[in-house]
Design a binder for these strands. Structure first.
Lengths: 160, 160
DNA sequence: CTTTTAATGATATGTGTCATAACAATTAAT
DNA sequence: ATTAATTGTTATGACACATATCATTAAAAG
């Protein structure tokens, strides 16, 4: 076949790999979500921090870092920026730790975030049957799940 | 409960979302794959380009951009760097297009890449049954799949 | 054929995320 | 009391991705 110079569809040596499919699907999610969040002048990491603070008042920066796998070095300017915008407050609780809480403006922002998250979820699931959703979530969770080490009490950036 | 000051497990407001699970799983994959590729002094994007060129000799830079959703603006330094390292050659085919082919060194590099890809795939699938693998791949593909528009012949960075 | 449109490759530049290294201050462990 | 670990911070770099702009060339339309 294709003896005539007809242009053949290019061979894709990657699409059978789980790693490649993960990469493309995550990029698709991020592109859409970033556009939606730009209306709020927020990045995805900033949104994640606000939602975690809302669900855990007085959580410290380092605890958030462990939950979201953010490096402490990157958390400082993130939390500082959100505080400077009046979305959260930092109250020293420990002498070295800061407990974070949402301001009323921050609480309004999380509401706006949730609307956009639901829109994004609907987009991601547009071609996926409702029966396939939970197994998909479970498989993804197993990919990045830490093997539970009951004694090793999770170190820096080790996600929860 | 938890009237005593015992530390409670932090509430995670994100882990029920497909978008979050995608983000974490893809980050896990990328962290592992980047470490493996650093032994070859390659990035993931560079590896992807080499594998696509191997499977499609004489493919042009723009065609690779469409397959891998890379912007043309970013392809120029990538292809230039791989050529400077002796991994691929650029042969003008068109006056404006360059056909890319692997050098022998580039072919050896793709072999080394495939070994590392297989190791990475085994890591990603370590907690996933073989029955669950194909449905997982299919669901991920449906997430980022373009809706097929038979007439609209794919524009810039529109993946194949 | 001539003009217009589109495609290709390239450069410069900015942003978001993640990474390491080094440091001061504070708390916990020995 | 000395040592070790934790928290927050600043500086800095790597990487992937994005937009804007441009010159050159090919294809399409007149």
């Amino acid at each position: 076949m294709s003896v005539s110079g007809k242009k053949t569809r290019a061979a894709h040596p990657l699409e059978g790999y789980l790693g490649y499919q993960l990469r493309r699907a995550a990029a698709f999610m991020q592109t859409d979500m970033s556009v939606r969040l730009s209306e709020l002048d927020l990045t995805m990491v900033e949104m994640s921090i606000l939602l975690v603070v809302e669900a855990n008042p007085q959580i410290t920066q380092s605890q958030i870092c462990r939950m979201l796998a953010i490096k402490r070095a990157n958390m400082a300017p993130l939390a500082g920026g959100l505080q400077a915008r009046g979305l959260l407050d930092r109250q020293p609780v420990d002498g070295r730790s800061n407990g974070l809480i949402l301001t009323p403006a921050g609480a309004g922002m999380t509401d706006a975030c949730r609307v956009r998250i639901e829109e994004n979820e609907a987009l991601l699931l547009r071609n996926i049957s409702s029966r396939a959703r939970d197994p998909l979530l479970a498989s993804l969770g197993r990919i990045w799940a830490r093997e539970q080490n009951p004694d090793n009490p999770e170190k820096e950036a080790d996600p929860i």
